[in-house]
Design a protein around this nucleic acid. Structure first.
Length: 120
RNA sequence: GGAGAAGACCGGGUGAUCGCUUGGAGCGGUAACGCUUUAAGAGGAAAGUCCGGACUUCAUGGGCAGGGCGCUGGAUAAUUCCCAGGCGGAGCGAUCCGACACCAGCACCACAGAAAACAAACCGCCGAUGGCCAAGACGACGGGAUUCCAAUCCGGUCGCCUUGGAUCAGGUAAGGGUGAAACGGUGGGGUAAAAGCCCACCGCGGUGGUGGCGACAUCACCGGCAGGGUAAGCGUCGCCCGAUGCAAGGCCAAAUAGGAAGACAUCAGUCGGCUUUCUUCGGAGAGUCGGCGACCGGCUGGCCCGGCCGAGGUCUUCGGGUAGGUCGCUUGAGGUUCGAGGCAACUCGAAUCCCAGAGAAAUGAUCAUCCCCGUUUGGGAGAAAAUCCUAGAUGGGACAGAAUCCGGCUUAUAGGUCUUCUCCACCG
RNA sequence: GCGCCCGUAGCUCAAUGGAUAGAGCAUCGGACUUCGGAUCCGAGGGUUGGGGGUUCAAGUCCCUCCGGGCGCA
């Protein structure tokens, strides 16, 4: 349906979808974020970002969501289709430089074999 | 120069690349939508939700609750906010702070203290006056001793006076450890001792004059003093407030579930007893009496009164509502600049501008450069320290994110700018 | 977003505005016991969430901030 334009279809927004992923997905954790990965079949992969009230004030919560959204936008071309990812950022992720975050994101997805192989 | 007081303002700037949301224009497309281009896109507190409104829905009345505020005047859409003033308090001062009406009624005032709200009196002081007791002087009377009488001496009774009392009646509240608070304060006179008992000043109360719109101020006269505190305890008085909050509310409307609304007629059933008719002997119908229905349940702005509804039948209509979507949704007690009025809050007039509208919630990521501050290195000025100039490296730049919209309050906030004023020190 | 409620010892709760804030459990010490448990005796532990105000006096009354919880589609 979407031709890859606006980023509405890039993100998981309904709590029903996020609860489904949390219940059925497998959980990995890194130094800067936790993540739940769930296979949902057809369609583009989607990313949900969950930031609880314990993370901090509204400014910190908004900032970390923006960081992870930017990460998703920059790297959406390399993601394999048919998965739902739910990210739970940790408090340290807001003080790290963006390049460190990007490196960790790529390597952890590589380990889960969710990245599209470059040469093919 | 130092130490302060009050008020106003800023809250990093510029540029590049890649993105997000909304509006306009153009192109493509039946449409949904897509592409290109252009414009705009967090705050002084957006926060806390403590007040006040706009706006929304809710209503058959009556009464009672409930809440808020409390010096005066002004200003406002409105306010408990704001402005100006009064009074009280703090400060040398600029200034700051103040729930700042009423103690008539009820209630409370622990411990300590003689006594804690009614006025008294535990210790104390006095004992003037009237008693009592003691001593003494004087007088009168009568007695005894020395004795013939006189005279002297002794003791007695009465009267009066003086002095005295661990005294009684009584006077007094000056002084008394306490306490947050003790029934005006200081000084003098006065007295037996005292006391507004008297006087001066201060405080207080009343009356009148003057000034002020007023709170109040001030002056004069009069009064010897009225009688504690707490109402952010119950309460009284005056004024104000209906409730509800954009998750209000309107519209469209999947899936699932079957009901919902209106009108009309009947105006009532059920249980038990008795009488009677029919009977397939199980019962059924009619009449009459009694019980329940009906001291019940639901709705009705928080409560009460009051009010409305309640079973079954027939007919007509299709609606209600969840997920979701959409409207509300940003042109407004609006901003900016002038002018006028007012001490000011603010008001009036003119011109001009359109300035976020998201929806698990857009305003971001990376980089360059400039600005400010700190650390440090090299060079220079300087005898050296201090300090200054210059170049570089490195770190930092607060509090904090619109959610229906406004007016305030409160709280958080790195660094900086401006204006006015006060006190102290020095120089002229 | 809007509305509402609650904060007392480590935990669960008390406490008319009146004095060192109390009880139970828990902790520690002692007694008892061969040792432990139970029991008995005793002790420690509190900025009454923070600050300010009213009052002679505040855990209590009032204001404000902080933390926690609940409801509303």
């Amino acid at each position: 349906m979407s031709q890859g334009g606006g980023d509405r279809d890039l993100f998981l927004k309904r709590s029903r979808d996020i609860e489904h992923a949390k219940k059925h997905g497998r959980r990995i954790s890194t130094a800067l974020f936790n993540m739940v990965i769930c296979r949902i079949g057809e369609g583009e992969s989607r990313v949900g970002i969950v930031v609880g009230k314990r993370f901090g004030g509204a400014v910190s919560r908004n900032r970390v969501k923006r960081l992870f959204r930017e990460l998703t936008r920059q790297l959406q071309g390399q993601l394999l289709a048919g998965h739902a990812l739910v990210v739970f950022p940790k408090r340290d992720s807001i003080v790290q430089p963006f390049a460190v975050l990007k490196e960790l994101w790529l390597s952890s997805l590589q380990r889960q074999q969710l990245l599209r192989v470059r040469e093919s």
